[in-house]
């Protein structure tokens, strides 16, 4: 297969801004931290309300009654703004696996702050998922350098 080439890619995708803060990969890192915070806050919000019954229990609308949920929504919107900016400059095949670093950050965060129990087997599965993500991101990142 050829290196990843998207015929629809705008020229700007090949020349990101020189300002470090506007670097799309810095924005991916900021976005990952915001998503991690959002996931933890949303979980807090989901746990803070009375458990509904029936079909409503599968939709989290009642969680909007919690302030934690709204904080989670705010951090999620901020991460979304970062993500829209990243999508303008980076191919989706690179950006999406890269932001999956949240698969490390969220379990570690839930273990540290929410005291979730994570079995050794589950840790192994999470590690395998991460190695797989690295195998995707590595070759694609090298291919991007050839664009």
């Amino acid at each position: 297969m050829d290196a990843p080439v998207d015929s629809q890619l705008p020229d700007r995708a090949k020349a990101p801004p020189s300002n470090w803060f506007l670097n799309p990969y810095v924005q991916i890192a900021i976005g990952a931290l915001l998503v991690t915070a959002s996931e933890l806050l949303l979980w807090r919000g989901a746990q803070a309300v009375v458990q509904p019954m029936g079909i409503a229990k599968w939709l989290g609308i009642d969680a909007l009654a919690s302030g934690w949920t709204w904080l989670g929504i705010i951090t999620y919107v901020l991460s979304f703004i970062c993500w829209i900016y990243v999508l303008r400059y980076v191919p989706l095949s690179i950006a999406f696996p890269a932001i999956n670093i949240v698969h490390v950050l969220v379990p570690v965060g839930s273990w540290l702050f929410l005291h979730d129990h994570i079995s050794p087997m589950r840790w192994g599965g999470i590690a395998l998922v991460l190695v797989g993500i690295l195998l995707i991101v590595g070759p694609v990142a090298r291919a991007e350098g050839r664009l």
Binding site: M1, D2, A3, P4, V5, D6, S7, Q8, P91, L92, S93, L135, I136, G138, P139, V140, A143
Partner: peptide, 9 residues
């Protein structure tokens, strides 16, 4: 989107 990945990925 017609994006391509290397086989190793």
């Amino acid at each position: 989107l017609k994006e391509r990945l290397p086989p190793a990925a």
